[in-house]
């Protein structure tokens, strides 16, 4: 009985925590970008603007939820739901602290990769079902980009898997007691970070929405809360990728004095801030540049990293 109760607590925490973080992130991102850009950002609702999330949510809920008459209705409605579900499901395997994970799968990492592949459907289908040219272009770009970057996203993690000897995220964290994997697997980390930006469609890889070219890309036809869900999905994605980087490369919950979960949250937050700063600093690349960068630079780099790691492990 206490076991079941504990499980329920785990589920509730791992469901609410990412959602809260994603919500808070909308404000943090806008405030931080504001500071970086010589302006305030939203600072009117609440003491420092932190209640802006609520204001936005109320506003989005109050808007007309319009579905274009030319759209493919069922797919159009399903698309935003897919992104939310696939990202939230991924959080099930993230260990918040020792022994605290909804599903302590021994193939946790594979589960994450599988779920993140599902996310592609959301964006591609949103663009496709809108039956409108700008979203279609956005959806096509998204499909090519996400599928292309998935390949070496998975490969970049295999170095870590080899070193830990497991796909289980908790085991991977435990394996970093002596040294965080970001040291020996630095190439893997950089590649995963870049792939993570691409997977979450963040600058400089925000081609699927590219507001100056495709207006809003795949979600141009969406309005009200469906539009909001894409945004929540994006922020959830950032949180997920940051959490995963914490687990895989920065020793997860490991750290002195403070309880494990504070270390985990602290590391994740810092990585999230890095992602935001990248957005403030970089322009957007072009579609063909993105693809050739992925296949011609990142993929070989990952393979070399893999070979070197394997050689080192065999030698020792």
């Amino acid at each position: 009985m206490p076991d079941t109760a504990w499980h329920i607590i785990e589920v509730v925490v791992m469901l609410l925590l990412p959602l809260l973080m994603a919500g808070g992130l909308t404000v943090v991102e806008r405030r931080l970008l504001g500071q970086l850009q010589d302006r305030y950002g939203p600072n009117r609702v609440g003491v420092m603007g932190e209640m802006q999330v609520l204001a936005d949510a109320v506003k989005l809920l109050g808007k007309e939820d319009w579905i274009p008459p030319f759209a493919d209705r069922p797919v159009f409605v399903a698309a935003p739901a897919i992104i939310l579900m696939s990202v939230l499901a991924s959080f099930a395997v993230i260990p918040l602290t020792s022994g605290f994970a909804v599903a302590d799968l021994n193939v946790g990492l594979l589960f994450f990769l599988a779920m993140s592949s599902l996310g592609v459907y959301s964006v591609a289908l949103a663009g496709w079902s809108s039956r409108s040219k700008y979203p279609l272009l956005g959806g096509l770009r998204a499909a090519a980009q996400l599928l292309g970057y998935e390949v070496f996203m998975g490969m970049s993690l295999l170095g870590v898997v080899m070193m830990a000897g497991s796909f289980d995220l908790s085991t991977i964290v435990e394996g970093q007691r002596g040294l965080w994997y970001v040291g020996p697997q630095f190439v893997g980390f950089v590649v995963f970070f870049i792939a993570g930006l691409a997977e979450t469609r963040r600058t400089p890889f925000d081609l699927p929405e590219a507001e100056s070219e495709l207006v809003a890309g795949y979600h141009a036809e969406y309005s009200a809360m469906k539009f909001g869900i894409f945004y929540v999905g994006e922020y959830l994605g950032i949180t997920l990728v940051s959490a995963l980087m914490t687990v895989l490369f920065f020793g997860g919950w490991l750290g002195p004095i403070l309880p494990g979960w504070t270390w985990f949250l602290l590391k994740t937050s810092i990585l999230i801030l890095v992602v935001i700063v990248v957005r403030a600093a970089l322009p957007r690349v072009r579609y063909d540049q993105l693809m050739s960068f992925g296949w011609k630079v990142m993929l070989p780099l990952t393979l070399i990293n893999l070979l070197v790691t394997a050689a080192v492990i065999l030698a020792t």
Partner: peptide
Amino acid sequence: FAQDLGAMTPVFYTFE
């Protein structure tokens, strides 16, 4: 122009 390339920040600096 920088904004057209997807760089978000320069436009705020130059407008300042």
